[in-house]
Amino acid sequence: MTEALEPTQSNLSPVPTESWISQFGDSGFRGISFLAALLTASIPFWMCVLIFKDARPAIAKFGLAFLWTQEWNIDQNLFGALPYIYGTLVSSAIALLLALPIGVAVAIITSEKVLPEGLQTPIAFLVELIAAIPSVIVGLWGRFILIPALEPFQQFLYSHFKWLPIFNTQPFGPSMLMAGVVLAIMIVPTIAAISREVFMAISQDLRNGAFALGATQWESIVFITLPAAISGIFGAASLALGRALGETMAVTMVIGNVNEISTSLLNPGNSIPALLANQFGEASDPLHVGALMYLALLLFLVTLAVNAIAAVLVRTLTRNA
């Protein structure tokens, strides 16, 4: 220790060799991690630019009319996206309609005091486990188990409600409705997890206020918690919608892959991701590839928009709470 006393000179600079190396190592390290961040951040741009570049033949030829043209004929090089856009939107809408009440119900029983805590966490875990199952396996199950199991249900809808345009065709298995059901199963975990977080972020004081006025547990949930959480629930729904729009494998395996637009949900249909999955492997004509790229670009942009809305909605709530 004594030698520390002797030098009364500071050696801030010139610096000894070892620390010159460490200084260089520092800027090198900083530089490398900066480049990594730059590369990572550039990927979404790169993605848009490349897909756009390869979509150009189709964009040039069909323009915006692509969006409302119904014909998709590979032999004649005629491409219109309407059936796929329609199928994507309708199947996602069905999914959202079915999944929203279920997801919110799960969020309620796993966050509000209607169940003992020892049960809440396992239930939340199990529901989130659904999200970990690869979608191709959900599709496999949908095709071989769910569709046969729901066959009587589809028949029932047809035989009793065929006066409704949405149920006016004879079901034969794969259908828009089945795609919606499978998608619903897959997006319930998203809605449940985010709504649960939103419920938990709502201050307990708000609930206590309701209890102090004599409200029951359920009254406080319906009249206090849910209204306070509404924008967060919308956010969860948008996020789930984003997931549903882009979901590919499970939908492909149960939607039927028929390029028709039909009002009946019991009829098979098609969706953008399903079409991409089925045709990209065989596409060789630049215009065909271009049309598929055009669809991929649309899908990407729409998903981005939906996710951006979700982010804004969830953020406003967490900020207010």
Binding site: I43, P44, M47, L50, G246, L304
Partner: peptide, 14 residues
Amino acid sequence: TILSAAPSIVVGVF
């Protein structure tokens, strides 16, 4: 975050 929201099929297209 945007990249994490990109549908996996679009990543395949990329």
